Simulated scan of single mutants.
Amino acid sequence: MTSPGPLRPASRYGSAQHPEKRGLGLGSKAIVLVFAAMFVVLVFYSVQYFQSREKVNASLSYVTHDITSDSSIRVWVDVTRNHLDQDAYCIVQAFDYSKAEVGRREFPVPAGGEEAMRVAVDIPTSARAVAGGAYGCSGAVPAYLDMDNPQYAESS
């Protein structure tokens, strides 16, 4: 019979006789816990994000603009709504040559009407505007936008 060779010291290489007794070390457990916590946080914020996206019941796309004076610009935008039975409001912007915002206007979109509509919005500006833009829409209409104002009924 041949001998199995020199024995390896268990203190240096670990015991090969009882591999089932080896487990994750404290450092490995901490890493697993950190990744698990990060995964839970990621899932939580993803759910929050998609729930907030569903609350937006209107979307806005820029069409064109017309510079009416040195202190105002008219911007045309297309408003498309998911839920016609809910109020919404949208924001349009005016920009100067350096792409700085020189004006902004919020306008309400009352419930009812058509799913898609084109709206012209006059924006007062603090400097000469050269371009307009569409910022976005929300379903949470601020209290200062009076939906019963006839001015808004005409523009939508």
Rank of each mutant, 00 (worst) to 15 (best):
I91F: 12
E101T: 12
S155Y: 05
G139I: 03
E154A: 14
V121A: 01
D78Q: 14
A120F: 14
V79L: 05
G136F: 02
F107C: 07
E106I: 07
Y152D: 06
A127D: 09
S61F: 07
G112M: 05
V141H: 08
M147G: 10
Y62M: 07
Y49G: 12
H65C: 13
P19N: 05
A131W: 06
Q48R: 09
G14N: 02
K99E: 11
R74V: 08
P124N: 06
P108W: 01
V130D: 04
A94M: 08
A37Q: 04
S3D: 13
T2A: 12
N82I: 09
S11Q: 15
S61Q: 05
T125E: 02
S126L: 03
F44R: 12
A36I: 14
L42S: 12
Y89G: 05
S69N: 05
G133D: 04
Y144D: 01
V34G: 10
P19G: 03
S61A: 06
S71N: 09
V63W: 11
L145M: 02
T125I: 06
P19C: 08
P6D: 12
R53M: 14
S46W: 10
A37E: 02
P142L: 01
G25N: 15
D96V: 01
E106N: 06
E154D: 14
A16E: 15
G112S: 10
Y13G: 10
A153Q: 13
I73P: 08
R53I: 00
